[in-house]
Design a binder for these strands. Structure first.
Lengths: 154, 154
DNA sequence: ATCAGTGCAAACGATTTGCACCTCG
DNA sequence: CGAGGTGCAAATCGTTTGCACTGAT
């Protein structure tokens, strides 16, 4: 169930045991992972240090093999490998679950290069809201307190 | 040059000197600010503590008056007040300048609620690329080194 | 007067870095 | 063999929190 085919090794990147382990973990993941999550998925027997995970991820990013992100309102970094094309996620504001969005709204109609003289090479789109379960829970918990103001609409 | 009209005070939020100062700084800003930037823009004579800035911003966020964000690849929080509607930015990968995008691509055609059962309440869209100046600099600096692989395309 | 708001400083957690050793090519 | 990679631990840095005090209603 955690099986995914490994992507080809990033060209120009030296192959070492720690790097391969991180690469495998990333390939197996179905969503962006934090360093801590990634670290937890490595066999403890590997004896790898957290700092190494950071360094490997940085190296991978510099080789254009992974992308560093952050979820809105969170300040911990998430890393996802750059498969062909790119992916967007719908993120539940309650349980933080990340649901992949099937199609990028811009994959057919590219974003206009609005800002004068600005050359767009990349973009990030994230949808925020509530998954079915959390929406239900919220309805049930209604009235317990006068909840905070609703977030600004999309 | 740093003149902007103050937005109406967030309803239900107690008025205090520190809060007003933060609010003014946010209204004057033309882009999301980090806590450090915000703190630097306050009169030193105000004697406000950084922790207060954090607390004020949290309060403002809970009242739906501001939004907490992060730039891709950065892990420091940025705060922007929620003016009517919402805004998106084109961010220069070289100089980090944030150029506001005029129109939200979704303001006419809302994003489909793709993920099964997922209720979208909000979204974030950021464009990454290079502003005119940095693009020129990059062209000139060409050949100095075999720069890193280009990021994945948009 | 009362309770939320604030300053100060210590606590925290994520990320970075210096240094000595080890490994890949 | 040599440059680069890694483990370990200490150092940073943004952010959070406990506590005593001040200010707004």
């Amino acid at each position: 169930m955690e099986e995914k085919k490994l992507l080809p090794w990033p060209s120009g990147l030296k192959r070492t045991k720690p790097r391969e382990l991180v690469w495998e973990a990333l390939c197996a993941a179905d969503r962006p992972l934090s360093v801590t999550e990634l670290f937890a998925r490595l066999e403890p027997s590997s004896g790898m240090a957290v700092s190494t995970v950071y360094r490997v991820l940085t190296a991978l990013e510099e080789h254009g093999a992974v992308t560093k992100t952050t979820m809105m309102g969170e300040e911990i970094a998430l890393f996802a490998l750059n498969r062909g094309g790119h992916k967007h996620y719908a993120i539940c504001l309650a349980c933080h679950r990340q649901v992949p969005v099937r199609h990028c709204p811009f994959e057919t109609a590219p974003v206009e290069t609005e800002a004068e003289g600005f050359t767009v090479t990349n973009h990030r789109l994230e949808l925020y809201g509530y998954c079915r379960e959390c929406l239900k829970k919220r309805r049930e918990a209604r009235g317990t307190n006068g909840g905070p103001a609703p977030s600004n609409p999309a």
